[in-house]
Amino acid sequence: MKILVPIKRVVDYNVKIRVKSDGTGVETAGVKMSMNPFDEIAIEEAVRLKEKGVASEIIAVSMGVAACAETIRTALAMGADRGVLVETDAELQPLAVAKMLQVLVTREQPGLVIMGKQAIDDDMNATGQMLAALLGWSQGTFASKIVLEDGAAFVTREIDGGLETVKLSLPTIITADLRLNEPRYASLPNIMKARKKPIETIKPADLGVDPAPRLTIVSVAEPPKRQAGVKVGSVAELVAKLKLEAKVI
């Protein structure tokens, strides 16, 4: 079974982001970029399925600027077999990404797509669900456990009150939540090997998809800052303030 894993290049999760002074977006020039953390988990899960002999080939797909090839290279060093880069400088939103992935899935015919549940930049949490819809496939979102057996996927999902397990017909789309696994660090020999693995570069037009955004960013602003309050000296003072000043208890 082939597994396709879409991955996104985003501002590294350790970076404290800055809103551009003209309010057009978030500063990304000169900022450290990394693979979206949820996508690392997706790659790790695919690699584990290959190590178990369930998967035969892992294809990592990224979309965006030429530097996304570095993100694909990271996935290859973790254990993916080859990469596809859909290169464009245009802003991409989930609907366009899902449409391009749909074409790639039709071409590659994977038995499973695993991807991060959301990107930590736009926080949309949409592309996996949208790809499943376009393909008419089942979807296992926010997965914390995946078991493939009896020709189906049993996916344990993180839901509001706890956990839920669903059985999904294959092929299916699974989106990874934080606790699905802990991604490995690529070893130096694997990083060297990854340099020789192939990355195919294509354009959105090659997939016949118009990637024009449907949402216009009107402005991006910093959220209102919360003012630090006061330090209290004792539990008694705290309770008195909560009762008499804040009136919340």
């Binding site: 978030v26 949402l215 009107v218 910093e222 959220p223």
Partner: peptide, 29 residues
């Protein structure tokens, strides 16, 4: 294109939503 996690409604087409873990607020149309 869905509009996720809307935190304010400006008009019928325009919405505010947090991005970057709530470290920025985007107004989108």
């Amino acid at each position: 294109q869905p509009i996720s996690d809307v935190s304010a409604i400006i008009d019928a087409d325009t919405f505010v939503r947090p991005i970057y873990a709530g470290n920025a607020l985007a107004t989108v149309k």
